[in-house]
């Protein structure tokens, strides 16, 4: 019974999401949703920001840089499993994350992330950390990243 209810809830959410997406798709430009970062101790000098970036425009774009008053430096990184079967991390190849026209790119644990190096503010649960993203074509966008468990 519980499973049945969950299924309906998921279906309802999917429907709502579809309607929501359709409703927003007329706005051109870049849309950021679900921006979050995991709480981490102050001795951890690096942190990561995750989010979904949707390019509603008709042209491909790219995330090329980021800045934040909460970080000494911000870089675009990706985690991946390397040929040794180990988890590896590196700055994104080419230094940018491509945002295809009409598509969404998900930055999530174990994949792409905006890396905050030399944290200047605490990543405590509930904190809102300001982040500015710079794109190849679209205007800069500044928003808050919520520090919370996923």
């Amino acid at each position: 019974m519980k499973r049945f209810k969950t299924r309906w809830a998921v279906a309802a959410l999917a429907l709502a999401a579809t309607i929501g997406t359709v409703a927003c798709s007329e706005d051109a430009g870049i849309e950021i949703s679900d921006a979050w970062g995991r709480p981490s101790p102050s001795v951890a000098t690096a942190g990561a920001f995750f989010m979904t970036i949707t390019n509603n425009g008709a042209e491909d774009d790219a995330l090329v840089a980021a800045t934040s008053p909460a970080c000494g430096t911000v870089e675009l990184h990706e985690s991946f499993m390397n040929e040794e079967g180990a988890m590896a991390m590196q700055p994104v190849p080419g230094g940018e994350i491509t945002l295809p026209a009409g598509g969404s790119v998900v930055l999530e644990p174990g994949g792409l992330h905006v890396m905050c190096i030399d944290k200047l503010q605490d990543f405590t649960e509930g904190a809102d950390l300001e982040l500015t993203l710079r794109f190849q074509n679209a205007d800069d966008t500044t928003f808050d990243v919520e520090i919370r468990e996923p």
Binding site: G72, E84, A86, M87, A88, M89, Q90, P91, I117, D118
Partner: peptide, 20 residues
Amino acid sequence: VWYEAHDEEGASGYLVDHTA
């Protein structure tokens, strides 16, 4: 467990890839 540090051009100095 395999691990290896590698230098990066950016601000990280170096990163360590490791069996997780």
